[in-house]
Simulated assay, not measured.
Amino acid sequence: MTRHYVAIATYTAKPDTADQVAQLLPWLAQASRQEPGNISYSIARDLERPHVFTIVEIYDDADAFTAHRESAHFASIAKMQIIPLLESRVVVGYEGDGVIG
């Protein structure tokens, strides 16, 4: 068993920007998966509310998640491109304990 940090983010896009957000999120995920300390990064789009996205990120620890949020790709993709397209963004952190994989 290993301890890890889990972040679950809910991004609610403005209805007219949902497809644009859907196109940008895979770029953010791809770069984030390459970070030291990242265990996994997945994106899901709500089937009934297609402007709502859930992102589940797992890191070795909270410091690795902090490094993610301070990375150049997070600044250029998330902060500069995705976040301005959102109505809201909620990120909740959890401590995980269990087998991953």
Rank of each mutant, 00 (worst) to 15 (best):
Y41A: 05
S42E: 00
Q30G: 03
H51D: 15
E57G: 10
Q30E: 14
R45G: 04
A31P: 01
A18L: 09
G37T: 11
D19N: 15
P26C: 09
R49Q: 14
R49K: 07
L25G: 11
A29G: 05
P36T: 14
T54Q: 07
P50D: 12
R49C: 07
A18S: 14
L25D: 07
A31Q: 06
S32Y: 01
P36S: 14
D19T: 13
D46A: 12
D19H: 12
R45F: 04
L24Q: 10
D46Q: 11
D46G: 03
E35W: 08
P50T: 14
S32Q: 03
V21W: 10
L24H: 07
W27T: 15
A18P: 04
L28Q: 13
R45I: 03
N38V: 11
I43P: 11
A18R: 13
S40D: 13
A31L: 05
V52S: 09
P26S: 09
S42A: 02
D19G: 13
F53A: 05
A22H: 06
L28K: 07
Q20W: 01
F53P: 08
N38C: 15
W27I: 10
D46L: 03
R45Y: 04
A18M: 10
I55S: 05
S42Y: 01
R45D: 02
R49F: 03
V21T: 03
R33A: 14
L47V: 11
F53Q: 02
D19Q: 14
T54M: 07
Y41S: 08
Q34F: 00
V21D: 10
P50Y: 10
A29L: 08
P36D: 13
E48A: 14
S42T: 01
R33F: 00
R45W: 03
V56S: 06
L25T: 04
S42K: 01
L28F: 09
P36R: 13
A29V: 08
G37L: 08
E48T: 13
V52G: 01
F53T: 03
Q30F: 08
A31S: 09
P50L: 10
V21C: 12
S42P: 01
I43H: 10
V56P: 00
H51S: 11
V21F: 10
W27Y: 13
H51M: 02
Q34K: 15
W27E: 13
G37V: 11
F53K: 04
Y41W: 13
A18T: 10
Y41E: 06
R49P: 00
V52K: 05
R49Y: 06
E48Q: 15
L28C: 12
E57T: 06
S42C: 01
Q34P: 00
E48D: 15
V56E: 03
V56I: 14
A44I: 02
P50F: 12
I55Q: 07
Q23R: 15
W27V: 10
A22T: 02
S40R: 07
Q30P: 00
P26M: 09
A29Y: 00
R49V: 08
A18K: 14
E57P: 04
I55L: 15
S32L: 03
V21R: 10
R45C: 05
A31R: 02
E35V: 12
D46K: 04
R33E: 10
I55E: 07
Q34V: 00
E35D: 14
S42H: 01
F53Y: 09
N38T: 15
T54L: 07
D19C: 00
P36G: 07
S32V: 04
